[in-house]
């Protein structure tokens, strides 16, 4: 007796959605994720409160210069991606998963998309909170239509870390190691980058590593000055060139498409000395470069993650 059941081959979209669902049900039930969300809310709240401490009661640019923040980028990347692949190996759930009619590439893409959806949702909620909070604390806000640009920028910044965490997890098959590698790299780059930008006469190499990059001043008027021990920072005109500030920089390109950013070297051992002008760059170049650098990192690390996953054997 021959068994003759005609089975419909599932479309790639069906398989992709199935994986995304599988992953989403997991992400939203992670306690860590709720923790990261609370953390981001606390940071956002501090951002409302901090300028107010310097007696700034009006800042119409608050919402469009808001960012979830670089520490949150790493944390969200870690909590959503750290065991996305390696956790499946650690728990053994990879065995039933990879013996379903889904290719590894599909599993990878579905998981990646679920990470994207999760982070997008979290950031959207935080941004809405920042707009509402910004209006309450600092009065009416300008150019709210640019907020989505800032949000997209933050997601791109976060995905550098998502890619790094995924690659580390996929290669080592160890979630804890993935977490330590990504977070260690973040700390190392933050400290190293901070030192270089303070001490070096030529910090432009910082533009090419993930982080805050080089700080400069946008030659525009407006914004609010905050002065702390002789250093005046303008809430609107301060620019960071690194991959952490993609959202902010995209907003500034739209607002001031032809403006330039000047970079100074300040002697940290002698605050009273006037800052020395190093060079100037156009805002457009800065934004484009940071996006380009981010996408190179994202592409390289996602490729490593995918390739290691695709090639792996399941030993258990």
């Amino acid at each position: 007796m021959e068994r003759q059941i005609e089975k419909q081959r599932p479309t790639w979209l069906q398989r992709f959605w199935a994986i995304t669902r599988y992953e989403m049900l997991w992400n939203i039930r992670k306690k860590r994720f709720i923790g990261a969300l609370i953390f981001a809310f606390v940071l956002a709240t501090i951002q409302f409160a901090l300028p107010a401490l310097f007696n700034i009661s009006e800042n119409p640019y608050f919402a469009i210069t808001f960012s979830v923040g670089n520490l949150s980028f790493v944390l969200f990347a870690i909590v959503t991606a750290m065991n996305s692949i390696s956790g499946e190996y650690e728990s053994g759930t990879i065995v039933p998963l990879l013996t379903k009619p889904v290719s590894r590439t599909m599993v990878f893409l579905g998981k990646l998309f679920a990470i994207f959806l999760t982070i997008l949702t979290a950031y959207a909620v935080i941004y809405i909170y920042s707009i509402v909070g910004g209006i309450v604390v600092y009065g009416p806000q300008y150019n709210l239509q640019l907020v989505p640009l800032a949000l997209i920028g933050d997601i791109i910044s976060t995905f550098i870390w998502v890619a790094i965490v995924l690659a580390a997890g996929s290669v080592t098959k160890n979630s804890l190691l993935a977490f330590l590698m990504a977070f260690g790299l973040f700390i190392a780059l933050a400290i190293g980058g901070g030192l270089i930008s303070q001490l070096s006469d030529n910090p432009s190499g910082l533009n090419y590593i993930p982080g805050s990059g080089v700080s400069g001043t946008l030659n525009v008027s407006g914004g609010q000055n905050i002065t702390v021990s002789n250093i005046t920072v303008n809430t609107l005109s301060s620019v960071s060139t690194g991959t952490d500030s993609i959202g902010n920089n995209m907003v500034k390109v739209v607002l001031y498409p032809t403006s330039n950013v000047s970079f100074y070297h300040r002697d940290i051992f002698n605050f009273t000395a006037p800052p020395k002008l190093l060079f100037a760059e156009s805002m457009g170049l800065i934004a484009l470069r940071s996006i380009g650098v981010a996408f190179v990192y994202i592409a390289v690390f996602l490729f490593i993650a995918w390739y290691a996953f695709k090639r792996s054997q399941v030993f258990e």
């Binding site: 599932p10 069906q14 199935a18 669902r21 049900l25 997991w26 039933p96």
Partner: peptide, 28 residues
């Protein structure tokens, strides 16, 4: 192919029915 691994382990955060539902979706 239907395959039952030796001492199978499935995602702890899913309900039994959800697991079968999601796997069913993977089969189209």
């Amino acid at each position: 192919i239907g395959y039952m691994p030796e001492l199978p382990r499935f995602p702890k955060h899913l309900k039994g029915k959800e697991l079968l539902d999601i796997y069913g979706r993977m089969y189209g």
